[in-house]
Nucleic acid binder design. Structure first.
Lengths: 248, 248
DNA sequence: CGTGGGGTTGATACTCCTCAACCCCAGTGG
DNA sequence: CCACTGGGGTTGAGGAGTATCAACCCCACG
């Protein structure tokens, strides 16, 4: 299971078991994994968009550069995540993607996606679920950016990350590694780096979050959830009922 | 074409021509249109999610209510739009939906979506494209909320709406109807109603936007696009290349 | 003719930004 | 082994942008 041939299967299995046949189909359609160094830009805005990719190892993020020189980070991608589904209906990239750490990625041409639609009902449903989940996460981030103050934004983001890490890598939330500089956090949360720093010290003064380099400690999870207005339901999808009722 | 039997086909045709066979399939799977009054709540957060719906007539919006009493509006839906795709992988609604004006909607059970995956490759691809487009629009709104000031937020939103209206209903942008109160605009843009009012008067003083009740006039489109940092590429999807290359 | 929803305007307060100085530390070359 | 350098982070002072509260206006509607 850990040395899975396909990049994507591990991620898919989280949604629904993948048959051997489907597993074979996936392996056949995706390109082989290639290593990428930290800082590498996988693609930039306005590049041609003809494939998506899956992260086999390492972290990455997608971003938009604005007219005024600022940058908005849109997603953080963890190992197993699918990158670039967004542009399926477009011929150009609408956001750039950059590696945060060394890693490995597989490319998967859009036209092969269409092959999946032809050949596997299960994989199609899973892909749709992945897109659905991404949209829901985006929605939650939108609310976070629009309606919460710096303290809540930061707390909410940390909780989202530790929940995601828990789901896919089994870490706990009390203490986890978060290899993001305060600049990245600022661009992610729509804040200045200065204010991110201040917010961390404020949260630390209140005993809610302790950050040392890339290590984050959350001693009282419930207290922080309260502070952030965090409700993890948006990260807990469940598509089994759909499958159960629909085979007929 | 205007008196289309299916709610959804008109929307789909915008992405790719729909065959008679597919047209029949859709008609068969969706429930019949039912009229709904302005203000009706189609569903609320945490309701069971087992279907999505298509707007045949009227405007609607989706929203999230926050702990602190504020409300964030997530999307504005126009006639022809699909509502609730977001929750495909979830068993609960994550956002409520309310009608802005009298209209008509069709419901479409999730499990029928799965039937489409089984039976029509073209419709599956279009559905995926619709999800893709929705995600892209959400992304652009996220950037708008996170990185722009009130003036730009409002300008950007007005431009997005008039572009969408142009695409689906053939209006021009110089003058169009926008049946949204300043309270709705505030909840949409993450502002207070007071500041929305001030921003309108500021834009009007500068000759960029004139609003009278629900009518909006934009005398100089280019000037406003400049002001807002608006680039319409995110609204102009194009999935034809995909189809052309993938049939084999 | 009163009532209420929607919008405008003014005064004040708070959140977060910007600029600038400074610190810490790891890596590099002499 | 030490001095230099640069990236990342912290702290302070001042200012921009937007929120909040409150009063008021307008007008459609019963």
């Amino acid at each position: 299971m850990s040395s899975e041939k396909s990049c994507i299967v591990r991620h898919f299995n989280y949604f629904h078991p993948v048959s051997d046949e489907d597993r074979e189909l996936l392996a056949q359609l995706e390109d082989s994994a290639t290593p990428v160094r930290a800082g590498t830009i996988l693609w930039e805005e306005q590049d041609e968009a003809a494939e998506f990719s899956t992260l086999k190892a390492g972290w990455a993020f997608s971003y938009r550069n604005l007219e005024n020189g600022s940058r908005q980070i849109l997603d953080i991608y963890l190992p197993g995540d699918i990158i670039g589904l967004r542009e399926f209906a477009f011929s150009q990239r609408l956001a750039g993607v950059q590696m945060i750490e060394d890693g490995e990625i597989c490319f998967f041409p859009h036209r092969n996606l269409v092959n999946i639609f032809h050949r596997s009902f299960t994989l199609t449903s899973i892909l749709f679920a992945v897109a659905s989940r991404q949209q829901v996460m985006l929605t939650e981030r939108l609310v976070n950016l629009a309606r919460r103050n710096a303290r809540q934004k930061l707390a909410h983001f940390l909780l989202e990350m530790c929940q995601r890490l828990k789901q896919t890598h089994g870490n706990g939330c009390e203490s986890f590694r978060l290899p993001l500089s305060q600049e990245v956090l600022a661009d992610l949360l729509g804040l200045s780096t200065v204010h991110v720093s201040r917010t961390f010290t404020a949260l630390s003064d209140d005993g809610l979050v302790f950050r040392d380099r890339y290590n984050v400690k959350i001693p009282d999870l419930e207290a922080l959830k309260q502070e952030a207005g965090f409700d993890d339901r948006y990260l807990i999808e469940n598509m089994r009922p759909l499958f159960n009722g629909a085979k007929a």
